[in-house]
């Protein structure tokens, strides 16, 4: 049965898991565990805490899977948003500074010419987002990613970057506007593209 589930679409798999199908749960966890753990680790910079947060993300997905609405986005975006929110809540509770792990991810994304090994790991949608970020000035890209991936407030980004609060806000907002425009210029992404 697990073998049959391997080819199931993400939303069908989620629905089956949410309905209590153990085989679907196995395939769902295997399919997304590296993505979920990657986000948790990038935000938290600690593998033990990332492990806890990633586990909790799957628990939330299981509990709320039957309320997932495909009209609002893909399963992987929904799952990673849950992971990000949990990780940021965990981070804020501990008041931790930006981690080396987060800095490494930002540096990798910010690189205009990623190394071939990194480029090969990009799926279609991630490549589109990286492309959308490519022409955003470095300081805006950094501020935007510190906020989006690291959960830092504008105030905190001002302190990290040693810039006034107003400048931090401007960098975040301008970066966001540019990325949004670039993403909207691209063709839509299908669920199958994203896997």
């Amino acid at each position: 049965m697990v073998r049959c589930m391997h080819d199931a679409a993400d939303d069908a798999l989620l629905a089956a898991m949410a309905a209590g199908d153990g085989d679907a749960a196995v395939v769902f966890v295997r399919r997304f565990q590296a993505r979920v753990f990657g986000v948790a680790h990038a935000v938290l910079g600690d593998r033990d805490r990332a492990d806890d947060v990633a586990q909790e993300a799957f628990m939330r997905a299981w509990r709320h899977g039957d309320s997932f609405d495909a009209r609002r986005g893909s399963v992987v975006s929904w799952l990673l948003a849950i992971t990000r929110n949990l990780a940021i809540d965990n981070l804020r509770a501990q008041r931790i500074r930006p981690t080396d792990q987060l800095e490494a991810v930002i540096a990798q994304v910010a690189a205009r010419d990623p190394d071939p090994a990194s480029a090969a790991m990009l799926d279609d949608d991630r490549r589109r987002v990286v492309d959308a970020l490519r022409d955003v000035p470095h300081e805006q890209k950094r501020a935007l990613l510190l906020a989006a991936l690291g959960g830092r407030t504008a105030q905190e980004i001002g302190e990290i970057e040693n810039i006034p609060l107003g400048t931090a806000k401007t960098r975040i907002r301008t970066g966001m506007r540019r990325v949004r425009a670039a993403l909207e210029d691209q063709s839509p992404v299908s669920e199958w593209d994203e896997r």
Binding site: L80, A81, L149
Partner: peptide, 9 residues
Amino acid sequence: DRLVRVVPP
């Protein structure tokens, strides 16, 4: 949500 997806697995 899409920005979060740039994080490598």
